[in-house]
Design a protein around this nucleic acid. Sequence first.
DNA 1: GATTAATTTAACCAAGTGGTCAAATATAAG
DNA 2: CTTATATTTGACCACTTGGTTAAATTAATC
Lengths: 203, 203
Amino acid sequence: MTELDSNTEKLIFRAARKIFTMKGYDGARMQEIADEAGINKALLHYYFRSKDKLFEGVFRDVFRTFFPGIKSILVTDRPIDEKIKLLVNQYLDILSGNPDVAGFIFHELRMNPQRLAGNIRDIVIDAREIRQMIQTEVEKGAIRPVRMEHLIANLISMTVFPFISKPVLMSLTGMDEPQFAQFIEERRKIIPEIIIQSIKPTA
Amino acid sequence: MTELDSNTEKLIFRAARKIFTMKGYDGARMQEIADEAGINKALLHYYFRSKDKLFEGVFRDVFRTFFPGIKSILVTDRPIDEKIKLLVNQYLDILSGNPDVAGFIFHELRMNPQRLAGNIRDIVIDAREIRQMIQTEVEKGAIRPVRMEHLIANLISMTVFPFISKPVLMSLTGMDEPQFAQFIEERRKIIPEIIIQSIKPTA
DNA sequence: GATTAATTTAACCAAGTGGTCAAATATAAG
DNA sequence: CTTATATTTGACCACTTGGTTAAATTAATC
């Protein structure tokens, strides 16, 4: 009753996810979702009681898509360089396949920051764990002392933001769609290089 | 008739800017803008004909706020390190004073990418100019050969994205509001360091 | 001060919105 | 096959939305 459910329900949900991520909560219309799913509008309310309920489910789903198993990567005992590469590549994979989710997530979170509270539990990596990991690496002499906040901010920024600013970036640089894809591929190398360089022990 | 205009017009415009940047086009209500301005709803339509027209004006205004005199910085003959520092600091100033504009701009641009065409003229830095500048610096041996796209992406990402992801970042790291402000202040040093390091000639 | 024009308002409207409901159809159980 | 149950639909509703209009008020002009 919660996992697979009826075919129709999945159909509706997928349509809702598409419309909501494209247009946002305020811009999405129940009628449009129904049309996209090829069913009657009343059926939306039969399966999901209200626009809010439907959106809540979609947001949860997209949120999980966007924050993948970060913990499982960070928690391994691979060298930190490798962790960074894995993280960047995993994010670029997700975002390449779902170019709208980043803009969607951050917009809806800005409209409604308290939504974070209900969803953060699922994926949150305890900040203390990361601080601990950095501390250990510093003591090993593997990296220089850095504030976790900046390390995270830099890594996520360089990885995610190009998707959010895609139209501006393309227009500004004159890239077309395939060139943008190529550009993202290049970033798989570039971002880890820069991040790793930025935390290398001072020579 | 276009610059100063009546007091009421400015009052309305400021209210509209506030509501639109907070809630986005779809989430904003003409009634709410009228309330914010302390005037009748019909008066909105007296000064600005429609929601679209009003929004267009606001968007233009915010857009100019967001893309400041990039060109005037890049075009000087100061050393590139200094240009980068100036650019980062200018952006952080703007964003600290207008924390909502980044999220607003990129959301509306994603909803309506063709809006870019009408506004880019005002501020666009010709990509060729930047490429030329990089080329010159490379020939001087001041920097290593880098793709302009990545340099721009990295710089803008690290500067702007923290504001867009502010709620997530705060929740994830446990920062409060003053700590976030402090965090941004630190980035004035950190971002230029990383960017400059990333373009330094290979030793 | 009278008259004309600009500004502001209350009341109103048509279209669109999320949501409901009773009837119709398909599916499952006996 | 019949009955009960789950699914799907068309018609409908109350409310909100952007927008209009005619009247009222204020400001400008003579």
